[in-house]
C-alpha cells in the first residue's frame, strides 16, 4: 500500500510509520472496566505471529514488534528439526510480567514457584555455556558436577519442556502438575549433587533407574499426580542411598 501511495520508504522498503502503526495495533489489547454503572470488566489479549524471512528477527517488522510487546516466544527451527516441541527457545524468549506474576504463582500454585523457575533457568543457562566446551573437547573433559549439570539440563528439556500435543494426557498439564514436574527434575539434580559431594560416583548417579520414572511422570493422570510424585521421590531417595559404596568401573 505504502509503495502504491508513493511514500518515501523507511527501512528495507517498509513505510516509515511501520513502528507507530504496529504500536497502535498492539495497544488495542488490554484489560478494561467499561464506563457506566454496571462495571463491565473485560480483557483482550493479543498473540501475534511474526514470521520473518529466513527466521532472522533483526528485520524491521520483528524489531518494531519486540519494542511494543512484553512477552516474546521465539520459535526455533533447530529445535523443530530435533523434534523438540513446542519449539520455543528457552534462552531468547522472555516475559516482562515475571515480577507482576510472582505473587500470583507463589500464592495460587506453590510458594516456591518463582524460585524453582529461576533454578531451572540457571541450569539451562549454564548448559548453553558448557555445551561450547563439550563441542570442542567432548563430554569427558567436564568435571563431575558439570556432567551432572548437563544431565539435569537435558532432563529439564526432555522431561519438562518437551510436550507431546497429540498425547491424551501430556497435551494439557495443569500448573500444579507443572510444579511437581519441575520439582522432580530439580530434586534429582540437587540430591545427586549432594551425593556427589559426599563421594558418590557420577556414573552410578546418572544410571539410576528412577530417572526414567521422572521422565515418564508427564504421562501421569491429573488425578494421580500427588501420590505418584511422592512415590517417585521415595524411589529417588532410596536409589541415591544405594549408590553410595558402588564404584565407577
Amino acid at each position: 500500500m505504502s509503495g502504491r501511495l508513493e511514500e518515501m520508504p523507511g527501512e528495507e522498503g517498509y513505510p516509515a510509520y511501520l513502528g507507530s502503526r504496529l504500536a497502535q495495533f498492539y495497544e488495542r489489547a488490554g484489560h478494561v472496566i467499561s464506563l457506566g454503572s454496571d462495571k463491565r470488566e473485560g480483557a483482550l489479549s493479543v498473540i501475534g505471529a511474526v514470521s520473518p524471512p529466513g527466521g532472522d528477527i533483526s528485520e524491521p517488522v520483528s524489531q518494531a514488534t519486540l519494542r511494543i510487546v512484553k512477552v516474546f516466544w521465539g520459535l526455533d527451527a533447530s529445535l523443530a528439526a530435533k523434534r523438540h516441541f513446542p519449539a520455543i527457545n528457552w534462552l531468547n524468549s522472555y516475559s516482562l510480567y515475571l515480577d507482576n506474576m510472582e505473587g500470583w504463582f507463589n500464592k495460587e500454585v506453590n510458594e516456591h514457584w518463582m524460585e524453582m523457575r529461576q533454578n531451572l533457568m540457571s541450569l539451562l543457562q549454564d548448559e548453553a555455556e558448557l555445551e561450547e566446551i563439550v563441542k570442542m573437547v567432548g563430554m569427558d573433559a567436564l568435571s563431575a558436577p558439570d556432567r551432572l549439570k548437563m544431565e539435569a539440563a537435558r532432563s529439564i528439556r526432555e522431561d519438562f519442556l518437551h510436550q507431546n500435543s497429540f498425547h491424551e494426557i501430556d497435551t494439557y498439564t495443569s500448573l500444579e502438575k507443572q510444579y511437581l514436574m519441575m520439582s522432580l527434575v530439580y530434586e534429582f539434580y540437587a540430591e545427586s549433587l549432594e551425593a556427589l559431594n559426599k563421594g558418590a560416583a557420577i556414573g552410578q548417579l546418572l544410571k539410576m533407574a528412577v530417572r526414567e520414572r521422572i521422565g515418564r511422570y508427564k504421562y501421569t493422570l491429573e488425578a494421580d499426580i500427588e501420590p505418584e510424585y511422592h512415590k517417585v521421590r521415595e524411589e529417588l531417595g532410596a536409589e541415591i542411598a544405594n549408590v553410595f559404596g558402588k564404584e565407577d568401573f
Binding site: 511514500e7 518515501m8 520508504p9 523507511g10 527501512e11 513505510p15 516509515a16 510509520y17 513502528g19 507507530s20
Partner: peptide, 17 residues
C-alpha cells in the same frame, strides 16, 4: 517519529531511513 515525518515530507533519507 522523526523518520515518519521526514518520510512524509519526502526528504532524502539517510542511514536506515
Amino acid at each position: 517519529a522523526l523518520r515518519e515525518v521526514s518520510a512524509a515530507r519526502k526528504e532524502v533519507p539517510g542511514r536506515r531511513g
